[in-house]
Nucleic acid binder design. Structure first.
Length: 426
RNA sequence: GCGGUCGUGGCGAAGUGGUUAACGCACCGGAUUGUGGUUCCGGCAUACGUGGGUUCGAUUCCCACCGGUCGCCCCA
């Protein structure tokens, strides 16, 4: 037997119903915020991620699905969405559109070669948005508001918006120097990873779980102390806008994002719900001024975020939120006898063309068993068509909720059901 | 990539170094020859992750691998 590759999954109907529901919710919310959908390829030139995401990141160094195609091009299954969106923004010169910022959303699978566990798959699906062309702190707040709205709109309560500022280049350089100076005397006491981080990306040391109790960690210089005036002011305004909207957040000065392109605003949304394992991050995002330029476009600020659908659904489970899925069927047709069977096929076809959900038996089941099936499918109405009904040009219509049953002329069945189905629900 | 743990029919779950591997759910049929959700009775199933090894004999013991899961790393 051949199973799915490691870290991937099949979504069976019971699950896809949920996926469709949250996808629709997300799309509708994006429309509300005036974000439009963009669809980019699932694989890109490897170079895009090396330059966009950053050569020193874990993603690029050890998590990419990279392969050469038959033309010997190096391609990579996308590990995240922002690089592709920015690439498309530059390639199609969307910066030339009269309405800016360019506000885009996407839904699609991402790929990272990692050791799978619950909430971490090698293929996973992200919802994301990107707003390109505005350096207004209000749009940072807008993106966070949208992110929170998705979760809250689905009924989640145990959420935490964690916020930090990474500052601009000047602030970051100054902070970086300060960090190196601070940790250098303690280098030998730090874990192996952190010793490497000290040279490459000292910011990462702050995020280390092994060394989190080290004295030097507590006294380490915070980026917030090194923000220059512009960065500081920007951060304050972002917070003001969040306050204005009544969106709660906590500042975590150690919040570091895993991708190189981030600056200024960085945030994560986490779940507090019990029953969540080691992985509590539901989504993450931030500002990436400079990325468009890095990828060959004009100087254009940008901000975005992405969430994992798998983790979103886990959070719903953890909080016991049941999605209002409609798993009923308008109508089930039961036929008895060869002639009735023929007529039933015609009837089903007629009703379906009228837009009514209909199904019938294809297993040669007996009358009683067909009723059982109708019940199991949550059929609202059952149409009974036997030789007797056929002879009289009628069909029995049974309301499965009330048990009431009446005879309708076959010629009238379409209009009758339409009335029942549209009138009875919604 | 590292460590812990687990892997029995469609699902859940017992169990044993040795003839036919429990049980529950689900499914099918009957009681009720054209009317569902209950009950009772009966029936069904390609089941011991894969490959080696130990043994007269392994689903059971050992090893490796694969996969799940938990934690680390890191993130979505």
């Amino acid at each position: 037997m051949i199973n799915v590759p490691r870290g991937t999954q099949d979504l069976l109907p019971e699950e896809t119903e949920k996926w469709q529901y949250v996808e629709e919710k997300f799309k509708a919310l994006c429309r509300t915020y005036n974000y439009q959908e963009i669809r980019t390829p699932i694989f890109e030139h490897t170079e895009l991620f090396q330059r966009g995401v950053g050569d020193t990141t874990d993603i690029v160094q050890k998590e990419m699905y990279t392969f050469n195609d038959r033309g010997d091009r190096s391609l990579t299954l996308r590990p995240e969405g922002t690089a592709s969106v920015v690439r498309a923004f530059v390639q199609h010169k969307l910066f030339g559109n009269p309405t800016q910022p360019t506000k885009l959303f996407y839904i699609g699978p991402m790929f990272r070669y990692e050791r799978p566990q619950q909430g971490r798959m090698r293929q996973f699906v992200q919802f994301g948005v990107e707003a390109l062309g505005s350096a207004d702190p209000a749009i940072d707040a807008e993106v966070m508001a949208l992110a929170m709205n998705i979760y809250e709109g689905l009924g989640l309560k145990s959420l935490k918006l964690v916020l930090n500022s990474l500052g601009d280049n000047e602030s970051r350089t100054n902070h970086r120097d300060a960090l190196m100076k601070h940790f250098e005397p303690h280098k030998e006491e730090l874990c192996n990873d952190c010793q490497v981080r000290l040279d490459k990306n000292p910011l990462r040391i702050l995020d280390c779980k092994k060394d989190k109790d080290h004295e030097a960690m507590k006294t380490a210089p915070s980026i917030l102390e090194y923000l220059n005036d512009y960065s500081q002011n920007y951060f304050e305004q972002v917070k003001d806008y969040l306050d204005q909207m009544g969106i709660e957040y906590v500042i975590d000065k150690n919040l570091v994002r895993g991708l190189d392109y981030y600056n200024h605003t960085a945030f994560e949304i986490m779940s507090n719900a019990s029953g969540f394992g080691a992985i509590t991050t539901l989504s993450g995002g931030g500002r990436y001024n400079g990325l468009v330029e890095d990828l060959g476009g004009p100087e254009t600020p940008g901000i975005g975020f992405a969430l994992s659908v798998e983790r979103l659904l886990m959070a719903l489970d953890a909080e016991g939120v049941a999605l209002p899925l409609d798993n009923s069927l308008d109508c089930y047709v039961i036929a008895m006898g060869d002639n009735a069977e023929k007529k039933a096929v015609e009837l089903v076809y007629t009703l379906r063309k009228a837009g009514i959900q209909v199904d019938k038996d294809y297993q040669g089941k007996k009358f009683k068993a067909q009723f059982k099936t109708a019940d199991r499918l949550n059929a609202k109405y059952v149409l009974i068509l036997g030789e007797e009904e056929l002879a009289n040009n009628v069909v029995n219509v049974k309301d499965m909720a009330t048990g009431e049953q009446k005879q309708i002329r076959i010629a009238d069945i379409e209009t009758t059901l339409e009335k029942l189905v549209t009138g009875g629900t919604n």
